[in-house]
């Protein structure tokens, strides 16, 4: 996460073009043009046989205010909020432990968090479904131990969606937290203690403020994808806790209403930008978001 100093190429533009050029092209083809396409699409209309026609309309945006959709936005934000909070609550002590352990193999602990996330998250989410389902492992165990007499339905509520989200997005919280805690100078903690602060006070006055940047970037990196991870709520939420991502996905698939999907996507992008702006305003560092 090193800061790259901002050079200005005044005297020699040719080398500048050769270095910046490919990146600009890449951005143009894979970011700018698709985005523009989505933007244009969001103002298009449908004909009777659900084909997209280039006829300007703002109706797609008007439909976004549909109470059913607002319900989904609310759920989506709630899920993202609880996911983020849980990720902080679990991730902070966890990152603290691996960042500050004196054990010499701490890189190993770190890798143990990261490695599982190299396998496809869809598969891992299905894993949770088989584990938690009425015919799943957990219920088998409960029945065997006579804790319950009938299988319990754990799945298909907001709780399981949040669980899946936490599970999927946890490393995105740990990464920036670990970095922030790792670079915390331990003599500052000694200085605080030396000046009469108990451990809890040192935590509140020194550790937390100095690692807040990690909490911020972690939160951004968890909250935003949470709005879009439709497959998690699909598999674990069973339609009871749709997020904005589900809504968008539906427009492009079963709903076959691309312009509406595009309008929803634009809204999601705007929400993301807004959150990042807030993050910057709070003094967040763009580098620690990995952008």
């Amino acid at each position: 996460m090193k800061k790259i100093s901002k050079h200005t190429f005044r005297s020699n533009t040719l080398p500048a073009m050769t270095t910046v050029g490919p990146v600009s092209l890449w951005l143009l083809f894979f970011v700018a043009i698709p985005l523009l396409y989505v933007l244009v699409m969001s103002f298009c209309s449908l004909d009777e046989s659900y084909n997209v026609v280039f006829k300007f309309t703002a109706e797609n945006y008007a439909r976004l205010m549909d109470p059913n959709y607002i319900q989904i936005y609310t759920t989506s934000i709630l899920v993202a909020f609880f996911t983020t909070v849980l990720c902080i609550i679990i991730g902070y002590p966890f990152s603290f432990l691996i960042a500050r352990t004196k054990w010499k193999h701490k890189a190993l602990l770190y890798m143990m968090v990261i490695i599982p996330f190299w396998t496809n998250s869809l598969i891992r989410i299905y894993g949770w479904r088989t584990f938690l389902g009425t015919g799943g492992w957990l219920n088998h165990m409960l029945l065997m131990l006579h804790i319950t007499s009938e299988p319990v339905e754990f799945l298909f509520n907001k709780g399981t969606t949040v669980l899946g989200m936490v599970y999927c997005l946890f490393p995105f919280m740990v990464l920036p937290l670990y970095t922030a805690i790792e670079k915390l100078d331990s003599t500052l903690l000694e200085a605080s203690s030396d000046l009469g602060a108990k451990g809890s006070v040192t935590f509140r006055k020194i550790i937390l403020p100095l690692t807040m940047s990690g909490v911020f970037s972690g939160s951004i990196m968890v909250f935003i994808p949470c709005l879009g991870y439709f497959f998690v709520s699909d598999i674990l939420g069973g339609g009871n806790s749709d997020v904005i991502g589900n809504l968008i996905e539906r427009q492009f698939q079963s709903g076959n209403n691309w312009p509406l999907g595009a309008a929803l996507s634009i809204i999601l992008i705007l929400i993301t930008l807004l959150l990042v702006k807030i993050y910057q305003k709070l003094g967040g560092d763009m580098d620690s978001l990995g952008v």
Binding site: D185, E190, S193, L195, A197
Partner: peptide
């Protein structure tokens, strides 16, 4: 006695000032 209970204070070589 923990460091915070001791009536001694330290000046660290690296200063250890609280940056925030």
């Amino acid at each position: 006695k923990e460091p915070f209970e001791r009536d001694v204070n330290t000046v660290f070589q690296s200063y250890a000032l609280f940056p925030h």
